[in-house]
Design a binder for these strands. Structure first.
Length: 652
RNA sequence: GGCAAGGUAGCUCAGCUGGUUAGAGCGCUGGUCUCAUAAGCCGGAGGUCGGGGAUUCGAGUUCCCCUCUUGCUACCA
């Protein structure tokens, strides 16, 4: 609902360590759509996007490429900006965290929080992941060393740091969540945040001395070795973009109507950010809206799989507006979405081509054939009041859906008037009416259809600006605030005009327009075993990758009983075992344990086996599984069930 | 392990505070008009509403148990 006169909409600022993918495009397109609607409806709108450019990771990436941090950031930042420009994203400001104004604003904020007693200096000791730029308690580390987020090695860092008194805001945050049921969307995410905060908040380390590429502390603190923690720097962009700490000239847009984000950065936005704002004495945003992920053909996207959706490629092949429509229509806000060319083509052919594009064509045909293109709405209400009422009742429901981020519902509802139009043509059969000499009725029907198309095009404009502009041109009107008021709010119809005969807006798409990535093709042909192989490849490339529990369960672990054991001839390490896994035949498993266990040792004992491993040949013997064992400097020992278990019992 | 949300037609989902024959879109299928992009319109098939139990005159809708999925979180590896 519009209760602010000003509407301020933000996307996250995108980290320049990555190139733009479908997720970035999705966030930005949602924001653009809301911004366009706000402007169209006459609200004073400010739409912000930009890039986040500081941090150790950037410093290192730049170094690795032999560039200065600034040059590297310039380069990647430009790729984002160019993409948004090519996508006709109507941002009012593209902020960069390397902007001087931003840096000044952040320093001002730091000072204010410091003066308010929310920042203190202490020593931080912890395991730090350079890649994630995050400290982790050792309890969270993998193997006491590796980052639980990215799997890379962490380093122990003991450094002087400034801390923000996040703990102080725990109750105030909870109060905010409770008093503002819609502060975090979707609501299920709000519950997660509440539970997390209820679990207790620790003060937040907000400066670093281990690298240099960041905003320095305010000079009056005279502590030049510190730079600000990237999240403090980054979050602050939402106010520095409005001039906070410098000219303040756009601060009247604050607080934000909505911060659009991906669900991965919810915690920063839903906990740290409001706490920072409280400390600064600024009002809190109305909504923090977290959307879900996109998969491709049901699979997670990753660079190593080579199945990342390139938004530019898709837009080029299928049309920018069509892509926008698909993204916004396909998935309920907050949920994960699946991108596939088939789904995209279905949307284009069915929703856009059949229901919308073809309707315009029908109107062009009828008006051309019967009235040489002229359309006059004078008598619409006389014959079609029922249809008008129905259409208006649908249109009346739309606006709230958009501002509640229910854009898929918004589009669904927006299609109902089109159905009314398509049905009316069949119901009243203008071709029959014309034969009966009822020209006024036919003209009125055309007026009705034209009116419906004009209204739908207006409301669809924020989602599909180019296409709707074309529709408007064909119907000789312009999409602007005045006409939005007239067609939507005042429920008027179009004036008399002569329709333009334009070619079909959505030519039918009969085949995939983009080549499918290899992995997707393989997926249908190969069994899960292959899938695991790919996972392994991924590991090698990225260090110890994190997996989901689902992936873990792809590994079949079973208790087995060794029913036969012998040495593999000419091998120093291998034993040849027959292990009963409760299957028809025992598995033959070749295990490299002879240095620690003799064949006799193993016979009759129970072991844990990876049962769905692709068979391998070792010294000429097929091995159909792998034994679990632990090895350190003192040797190797088997992992066994504590108590005897039936052969084949699964472990998990 | 804890918490949360879910399991409804082939697919994606809607079903508010319990009430007559459980809905939509897509897909499939039969029919039909001709203004139109093999589009439109009308009709049809298809669901023991995850399983079991309880409350009730009556439960997809409430309660309990089980099961599976997803998310967050803890801990172990």
């Amino acid at each position: 609902m519009s209760c602010h006169k000003n509407v301020y909409i933000t996307t996250p600022i995108y980290y320049v360590n990555d190139i733009a993918h479908i997720g970035h495009a999705y966030t930005t397109i949602i924001a653009d759509t809301i911004a366009r609607y706000s402007r169209m409806s006459g609200l004073d709108t400010f739409f912000l996007t930009g890039t986040d450019e500081h941090g150790q990771k950037i410093e290192e990436s730049a170094k690795a490429r032999g560039k200065s941090s600034q040059a590297y950031a310039d380069e990647i930042s430009a790729t984002f900006r160019n993409l948004w420009d090519d996508f006709h994203i109507t941002y009012d400001k593209f902020i960069r965290t390397t902007d001087e104004d931003h840096k000044k604003g952040v320093q001002k904020a730091f000072n204010t929080m410091y003066e308010n007693g929310d920042i203190y200096k202490d020593v931080y000791k912890g395991h730090y992941c350079i890649s994630c730029e995050t400290f982790f308690p050792k309890s969270q580390l993998v193997d006491d060393e590796f980052c639980p987020e990215c799997g890379k090695s962490t380093v122990i860092v003991e450094e002087e740091s400034y801390f923000f008194k996040l703990s102080k805001y725990q109750d105030k945050l909870l109060e905010w969540y409770n008093n503002n049921p819609e502060c975090i969307l979707p609501k299920s995410k709000r519950n997660e945040v509440i539970r997390f905060v209820e679990g207790g908040l620790e003060d937040l380390s907000i400066t670093r001395t281990s690298f240099d590429w960041g905003v320095k502390l305010p000079e009056n603190l005279n502590d030049p070795k510190h730079v600000m923690y990237v999240w403090l720097d980054a979050l602050m962009n939402y106010v520095t973009a409005l001039g906070y700490g410098t000219d303040e000239k756009n601060m009247h847009y604050w607080p934000a109507r909505v911060h659009l984000i991906g669900k991965d950065i919810l915690r920063f936005h839903a906990i740290y950010w409001p706490a920072f704002l409280m400390s600064l004495g600024l009002p809190l945003p109305k909504h923090i809206a977290a959307h879900g992920w996109w998969t491709r053909d049901g699979e997670k996207m990753s660079k190593s799989k080579g199945n990342v959706v390139n938004p530019r490629e898709v837009a080029d092949a299928y049309g920018l507006d069509n892509f926008r429509y698909f993204l916004l229509r396909e998935v309920p806000f907050g949920g994960d979405g699946d991108f596939s060319q088939k789904a995209l083509i279905d949307r284009i052919n069915s929703d856009l081509g059949n229901d919308l594009g073809n309707l315009l064509n029908r109107l062009i045909g009828m008006s051309d054939k019967y009235f040489e293109g002229k359309i006059d709405s004078t008598h619409v209400a006389k014959y079609y009041q029922t249809e008008l009422n129905e259409v208006e009742s649908y249109l009346d429901r739309l606006e709230p859906l958009l501002f509640e981020m229910q854009i898929h519902r918004y589009l669904e509802e927006l299609w109902r008037p089109l159905a009314v139009a398509n049905k009316s043509i069949d119901k009243y059969q203008p071709w029959t009416l014309i034969k009966e000499g009822k020209e006024e009725e036919v003209m009125a029907l055309n007026g009705l259809i034209a009116g419906i198309l004009a209204k739908v095009a207006t409301m669809l404009y924020p989602v599909m600006p180019e296409i709707c502009t074309k529709i408007a041109e064909a119907l000789h009107f312009e999409i602007n605030t005045e006409n939005w008021q007239k067609l939507i709010k005042d429920k008027k119809l179009l004036e008399t005009f002569t329709i333009e005969k334009i070619p079909p807006l959505f030519p039918r798409i009969e085949e995939l327009l983009l080549a499918q990535p290899q992995t997707v093709v393989q997926k249908t042909e190969e069994k899960p075993v292959k899938k695991e192989e790919k996972k392994n490849v991924e590991k090698k490339e990225e260090g110890i990758a994190l997996i989901g529990i689902d992936q873990f369960f792809q590994t079949s672990l079973k208790v087995g009983t060794v029913v036969a054991a012998e040495e593999v001839p000419k091998s120093a390490k291998l034993l040849l075992l027959q292990v009963d896994l409760g299957e028809e035949h025992p598995r033959q498993i070749v295990a490299g344990i002879k240095e620690w266990y003799s064949a006799q040792d193993m016979l009759g004992t129970q072991v844990c086996v990876v049962a769905n491993l692709k068979p391998a040949k070792l010294m000429g013997y097929t091995s159909e599984g792998m034994l679990l064992a632990a090895k350190d400097e003192n040797g190797l020992c088997m992992i066994r069930p504590e108590k005897p278990k039936k052969s084949g019992t699964s472990i998990g």
